[in-house]
Amino acid sequence: MTETEMILNAAREQNRKTLSEFESARLLAAFGIPTVKGILAQNLEEVKKAAEGIGYPVVLKLCSPEVSHKTESGLVALDLRDEADLELAFRRINGSSPVKDADYLVQEMVKGGRELVVGMVRDPQFGPCVMFGLGGIFTEVLGDVTFRPAPLDESDAMEMLMEIRGNKILGAVRGMEAVDLDSLVQCLMAMGKIGTAHEEIQAIDVNPLIVKGSSPVAVDALVILNTSS
């Protein structure tokens, strides 16, 4: 059994509608999508150890398939510089958590001036469709996104990159390097492959996909399962 199948089976057995962020990231990584370094921890001791392993600064998030909209609920702490920062954040998140015994996800703090979004949705008519666009807050605010039915070939993916209104963001702007387009193309094609290979996945959000230097890295991921099948 592949890692992806193990993740999906576990979720199915528990009758879950979503994968946790950690599971989602592992699934993406299994398809070759670059994901941010992250370690799952269950208590403060493990959280500290994970942060040392990754190296400061880090991000601390509550990690549970039952909790979405983590940022809005105060369950994410960014750019923690040292152990004192980390411990404070841990206690705050622990206090706000709606779930008992949830896991914690310690991640590398990825900095980049550009946030993109990549997604997949299963359309009732066209089947799995891949999305690409501007990420982070701009996804909702501008809706500058484009779709293609999966599977994608390289030219489909390249056309998507060039098609968004804000495509200049992929070039060398404001002293930033041009984005590695091949790597982005591979991400989009991989999303299509996930969609065609796993019918039980209804939708995927990778938002943001942060451009670190020139390389896109998935920093947050959400996999929604098709509960009807």
Binding site: T18, S68, V117, G119, M120, V121, R122, D123, P124, Q125, F126, C129, M131, G133, T139, E140, G143, V145, T146, F147, R148, P149, D156, E159, M160, E163, Q202, A203, I204, D205, N207, L222, I224, N226
Partner: peptide
């Protein structure tokens, strides 16, 4: 309207956008 709720991708996946991409492809 039968797209999964809760995902940005699904919320943005209007018929028009998907058809647009499909026809281009």
């Amino acid at each position: 309207g039968s797209h999964a709720a809760g995902a940005h991708t699904a919320a943005l996946a209007s018929d028009d956008r998907i058809i647009d991409g499909a026809l281009k492809q």
